[in-house]
Measured scan of single mutants.
Amino acid sequence: EHKIILYENPNFTGKKMEIIDDDVPSFHAHGYQEKVSSVRVQSGTWVGYQYPGYRGLQYLLEKGDYKDSSDFGAPHPQVQSVRR
């Protein structure tokens, strides 16, 4: 199983989107239009992308907690697509 939770604010606060065993080419299409400032990967390895359609900067997200976007190497809290 692959499970990831994306949070609007640092330290796992604010609006969140939970994804289980699915690739998401556009967070906006899924109704999530917030920034991504923290991430909790509960299982599996994911790649987050700066822009929709798996474009832009890529961020490797392995199991663990990323309490701020800088923890996974993002210069800005901008992640708009993700895949396993």
Rank of each mutant, 00 (worst) to 15 (best):
S69K: 10
A29R: 08
L61C: 01
I4T: 07
V24H: 02
A29P: 05
S37A: 12
L60P: 06
D65L: 06
D68A: 13
Y7D: 00
G53E: 10
S69F: 13
L6P: 02
F27C: 09
V79T: 08
D71Y: 05
F27D: 04
Q50W: 01
I4P: 00
V24E: 08
L6W: 02
G44P: 01
P10T: 10
I5M: 03
W46R: 00
S26G: 08
H28F: 10
D68Y: 09
A29V: 12
I20Q: 11
L61A: 01
Y54C: 04
G53W: 06
L60Y: 06
S38I: 02
A74T: 15
H76Q: 12
N9C: 04
G48T: 04
M17R: 11
P77R: 08
K3D: 04
R40I: 13
P77I: 10
H28Y: 14
K16F: 15
E18N: 04
E62P: 08
D21Y: 03
F27Q: 01
I5A: 09
Q78V: 14
T45G: 06
K35L: 07
S26D: 15
A74Y: 01
S38G: 03
L61T: 09
Q42V: 15
Y66I: 01
V36I: 15
F27V: 09
K3S: 11
S37H: 13
Q50I: 00
P77C: 10
K63T: 10
D68G: 13
D23R: 02
Y54T: 00
Y54P: 01
L60H: 15
H2W: 10
P25Y: 04
F27Y: 06
D22C: 08
P52N: 05
K15N: 13
D23S: 03
L6D: 00
S37V: 09
H2V: 00
A29H: 13
P77A: 08
P25Q: 04
G44T: 01
V41A: 01
V41H: 03
P77Q: 06
E1G: 08
I20K: 15
Q42I: 15
P52Q: 05
S43C: 07
Y7I: 00
F27G: 01
G31Y: 03
Q50F: 01
S69R: 09
Y66P: 12
S38D: 05
I20Y: 15
K16H: 08
G48V: 15
V41W: 02
Q42G: 11
G53V: 12
D22P: 01
E1C: 15
D23G: 01
E62I: 10
L57C: 15
R40F: 03
E18Q: 06
K16V: 08
H30V: 12
M17A: 01
I19L: 14
H28L: 14
D23C: 00
G44S: 03
K67G: 13
Y7P: 02
Q78D: 14
I5S: 08
V41G: 04
K15E: 05
K67Y: 11
V24W: 06
W46F: 04
K35Y: 02
Q50A: 02
E18A: 00
Y59P: 07
Y7R: 01
Y54D: 08
L57Q: 15
V47M: 07
G44V: 00
V36M: 04
M17K: 04
T45R: 06
L57A: 14
K3H: 13
S43V: 10
A74W: 07
Q78F: 10
M17P: 03
V41F: 00
Q33N: 06
K15F: 01
I4G: 02
K3C: 09
E62Q: 09
V36E: 00
L60D: 12
Q33D: 12
R84S: 03
G31A: 07
G48I: 04
Y59A: 09
D21A: 01
L60I: 11
M17I: 15
L6V: 11
G53H: 05
E62H: 07
E1S: 10
H28A: 15
G31D: 06
V36H: 02
L6K: 02
P52D: 06
G73S: 02
Y66F: 05
V47E: 07
Y32S: 14
G64Q: 07
K3T: 02
R84L: 09
D22N: 10
W46C: 06
F12Q: 07
E34T: 12
F12M: 08
P25I: 14
